[in-house]
Design a protein around this nucleic acid. Structure first.
Lengths: 196, 196, 196, 196
DNA sequence: GATGAATGAGCTTTCATTCAT
DNA sequence: GATGAATGAAAGCTCATTCAT
């Protein structure tokens, strides 16, 4: 048995339930039912309800980081890298909609009830962007007066907010891939060195 | 006594408590204590806990919209208008930090427990951006291939996420005004018509 | 102003509200609204919610007793007297339906939450029946082996339960006057001296 | 453990508490304490407080109906059957005093807060009387002009009210069995065919 | 006397967590 | 390891009663 079959079954069930009801309104018994285990069993794998949420952050974002980094590392051009990041982020949201909802929602909540929890995985994820920008600046492709610390957040925020609203009303006039392209286009236009 | 002193006292207390604990963890008695009224008094002015949250959205965002629109209407140049929007949004967050936290957090939560509630005020607010972009496109200042519906969300998301993280770690290397400038610079660079 | 206009207005409003909702579910504010006075005004005339109920018993039953006694005293024949009692009881219930509902319901409830309250008015009322029977026994019209203490309760119970169900489903196959006749017929048949 | 020990323990505790305090004044915690379970446990077996009351009606009256019918079915003579009904009703009240109090009280209350609840069990119970009378009329033992629908209610009301007052003041001058005899004597005298 | 806004005690119900089996 | 019945703390909300105006 891998890291335990049940551990994963519970995580996957929790993602669905949290996405549907939100963390606070989700009941342990909902998760247990969806995971087809007894309520008590959950406490053999997690300390408490919060612990499930944190585990979702840690483990699932971890997998995404690895995948995104792998794709980006195959590129040399920072412009392409930024495009890939945008596209992959959006695709992930499309493919793993429930997970995306949990991350988006609870990311904002979490710091309220888990003051102590520093979301290092999330930081690691958006730092991919600042590294790309940094690299572009070194290569004199991106403007030097762009602050990578601001730009990474702006980029992530732009993608995430667009995705959030796309999720809420899926009857949209644009596909999520189009949105990704638009956003990377705007950002690249804004940060590229003007060599004229 | 103005049109209900108490109504406003409760709203202001709720903003503080929601900001500190989050909506779900906030107790009515916390709000009552902070507003210096009895628990029951709250129910003379609001139907229930959710109603307080919704009132915060409606009333407080309403005031901000009016103010931002007033400032923007004094300008003619869409570029300046976008700069003003970015700066005012950030200043509002700086000045009304607690309110900003509530809006940011619960904006993401709300659709989970208030499915029926359509946040028209919020839509009205970000539509300010799409109107600016539309205007700039008409005046051939902004690129025609930028989709206003995507750009408004991207712009808002960029500002909001940057602000969110600035709030969380106020020991930042940049001021919030600098962040506002960076973001409007990037966006303007990305959407301006290239007349070369 | 008589025993106070307001006192009576509140009593009449309370009868309606108690009849509709029952004592516990009735709110003071309901009564105040129906009586067109302020909530606080009620406490100028009554000590508390229970006190209103007790006052209904005392005052309203008091009036009925006086009336029933007056009618009965015009008769000499105990058989007729019993018939009058049955008919008047039923007519009262028909005419003062709300009052009847309150008396019936709360009579059974009251001893639970007002242990100390001895419902002397009610006792006085049903003692009318035992006095009639006693009189009939003295006149050798009614059987001597009938216990007046049992018969009075049986008679009252028979009338009251029949009336209660008649109120609940007014689409009955008999009028309340027919029911009164049936019951006095049965009782008279059962207690009359057999002179054969 | 039989088909849920706890379900029955809670019912029995609730009968005692409702009898003592009345439905509205009874607190869930009172019932829980008397049943020696936690407050929350009650909600594993019942949906809410009303549901406990309804269950008492359904289950406990159900048992009584079965027993009374069994005894009556052993008789042929409608006169005897009526006597048995009266006696058994009174004995039940004596033996299960708390249950009797709950049934009597809440029977009158219930229609106020549970409009939707049709007390079919109770109807079934008093219909035993109308069936007896009907049978007696067919056999030309009882008078044809007696309306079974009125007589059943009158009979039940007479028994129930006499029992109610007997419960309230147990220092009575008659036993409950004597009362039963008196009442069946009066009724039989009143409804028997006069063959003289 | 009259008002009705304000009070705060009190109670039903929920649900994360435990633990005997 | 797995179960799920049982626990009991916790909190939203109601409403009888008070009292400043």
């Amino acid at each position: 048995m891998r890291i335990s079959d049940k551990h994963n079954k519970i995580i996957q069930a929790a993602i669905k339930v949290f996405a549907q009801k939100g963390f606070f309104s989700a009941r342990i018994s909902d998760i247990a039912k969806k995971a087809k285990v007894a309520d008590g069993t959950i406490y053999l794998y997690f300390n408490n309800k919060y612990d499930i949420l944190i585990s979702i952050f840690e483990e699932e974002i971890g997998k995404i980081i690895v995948e995104v980094k792998r794709l980006i590392d195959q590129e040399e051009d920072p412009r392409k890298m930024l495009e890939i990041f945008a596209m992959e982020h959006m695709r992930m949201i499309k493919d793993r909609r429930n997970l995306a909802e949990v991350l988006q929602m609870e990311l904002r909540q979490s710091n309220k009830f888990m003051k102590e929890y520093r979301n290092t995985k999330f930081i690691e994820y958006i730092d991919i962007v600042s590294m790309i920008i940094h690299k572009g600046q070194k290569m004199s492709i991106f403007r030097k007066d762009v602050m990578p610390g601001v730009a990474k957040r702006a980029m992530f925020g732009a993608l995430d907010e667009t995705a959030r609203l796309w999720i809420l009303s899926p009857d949209n006039q644009y596909t999520i891939e189009e949105a990704a392209k638009q956003i990377s286009m705007i950002f690249l236009g804004g940060i590229e060195q003007n060599n004229s």
